[in-house]
Design a protein around this nucleic acid. Structure first.
Lengths: 147, 147
DNA sequence: CCCATAAAAGACATTGATATCTTTTTAATA
DNA sequence: TATTAAAAAGATATCAATGTCTTTTATGGG
């Protein structure tokens, strides 16, 4: 409804790495996909996007895998949304009217604007690191249990 | 992002009828589709859904068409969302976690809940009739201009 | 009762998001 | 430098949302 599945996979992927990355070990795609019950190859694409955008790192080859870098946990959620969903669509009018704006508003313009601004504010304030609940021993289960 | 295109078409369709329905005349699909620049047959499906759900009326045959009934303008927006998008998806976790709820929340649960509740509140309060801006002579242009 | 009109119904097509599979590139280390 | 592990890249497949076309049904008027 609000965001794509890709966004969810991306977020869960990063959080999973963060949780097992304590010792700095790299985490492999297979492990992430399996633990989170996410389609392996699809997840690969999404992880790749994050690496390309620099909010996550990876190395190929033996002992390779994905790992956090300096910016990972400081990354704002909105940044992740940009990568997976793009922010343009935040400005799309619910009624698909291209000329809809605050000067020439559609009947739902201000209501949707309020919602969007609320979401943008939330997602601009929160960082990935803020979502880690390290005091909760079952946190990893929380982001893994899909069914 | 927030709602389907179908919702937008449905809303614009009803509003269009409301605007030209002053004299109680019925409005035909072709006119609505043309004026709103919406794919005719797709709009047909959506109008049909509204008729089936009783928030709009229609008659077939010569001089037939769509027209408002007693409930149309009293219909809450949320009702329209139910018809076009279904409300179930309002409760779907952004991270696609089925067991996500307030007792066992995903890392974004409460943020999304807040947004959802805000949207539900807005859409439960507003009626279709509330969206008619009869003082604005260009209102019909507003809901028609897509490009 | 027949004709014309317009919605209803349902079959079919397209597209974009989601998902899978295969090949290529990179990197570690023996 | 050969081997092998793992990500990167890209081709292909599936599915649901969106969009189009065709046939059927209902209705008003001649």
């Amino acid at each position: 409804m609000f965001l794509s599945k890709s966004f969810g996979y991306a977020l869960r992927g990063v959080l999973y790495i963060a949780l097992v990355d304590k010792e700095g070990r790299k985490v492999q795609l297979d492990e992430i996909a399996e633990k989170l019950s996410v389609p392996r190859h699809f997840l690969a694409k999404i992880m790749k996007m994050m690496v390309k955008e620099g909010i996550l790192s990876s190395t190929k080859g033996p002992y390779g895998g994905f790992y956090l870098n300096e910016v990972t946990l400081k990354t704002k959620l909105i940044q992740l949304v940009k990568i997976t969903d793009g922010v343009e669509q935040f400005n799309i009018c619910v009624l698909s009217l291209r000329k809809c704006n605050s000067k020439n508003p559609c009947p739902l313009h201000f209501q949707m604007l309020k919602l969007r601004d609320g979401m943008l504010a939330e997602f601009s304030a929160k960082k990935l690191g803020d979502l880690l609940d390290e005091k909760n021993p079952d946190f990893i289960k929380t982001i893994s249990t899909i069914a």
